[in-house]
Amino acid sequence: MSPSRYRDGARAIAPIAIAAVTFGASFGVLARSVGIDALAATVMSATTFAGSAQFAVASILGTSGGVAAAVLAATLLNARYAPISVSVAPLFEGGRVRRLLEAQLIVDESWAVSRRADGRFDRRLLIGAGLVLYVSWVTGTALGSMGGEALGDPADLGLDAAFPALFLALLVPQVSTRRALAAALLGGTVALVLIPFVPAGVPIVAAAGACLIGWRRS
């Protein structure tokens, strides 16, 4: 474990960082259009740092959905971070405050790239990738909310397809055992079946339950 692994994490996430800046900018633009000013939008990206939840909040407040609906939707969307954070818990060392701060760099993408081929997670990969994503997301939000329409619609650039592509590329080397393949198929199916019936975010949490097929009685 050399310090260069932080850089490896940053390098691994670089293809997605550009998408993160652009989506951060589009969050900033959307936020401003519903009356969330540049300061509030940037503070939200710096403190929440979870794209889908932030988009949900902006769109719900924009359609006057109310505080409770916005908070509930965002919390459901982010509920997956409870099981995800448990999976990487052993990596975090030091005092509680340090662990709490470092844990904020856990997002889907940094978590996904921090898993090594041997199935263990790597703290330096996660932190390196997480920092790059954090700076990209917050910078993008600030640019967008201060008038970054010129950056364009991420969908026109196909950037929304970059995310499933990243997750697919990271999934393929993981399904090297029959159990892992079964968990992936079950998780994907559960998510697909649930999408039409439950609020966004819930399908991912339910799919996480597929990992219980690995339960062994001690």
Partner: peptide, 26 residues
């Protein structure tokens, strides 16, 4: 055993939701 299967299960769900997920629709 459970945690080692969390990554494939959640990654597959992320692929699906990012690919075809809409507002309660495919």
């Amino acid at each position: 055993g459970v945690v080692s299967l969390l990554a494939p299960a959640v990654l597959a769900a992320l692929v699906v939701t990012q690919l075809v997920g809409g507002d309660r629709e495919i």
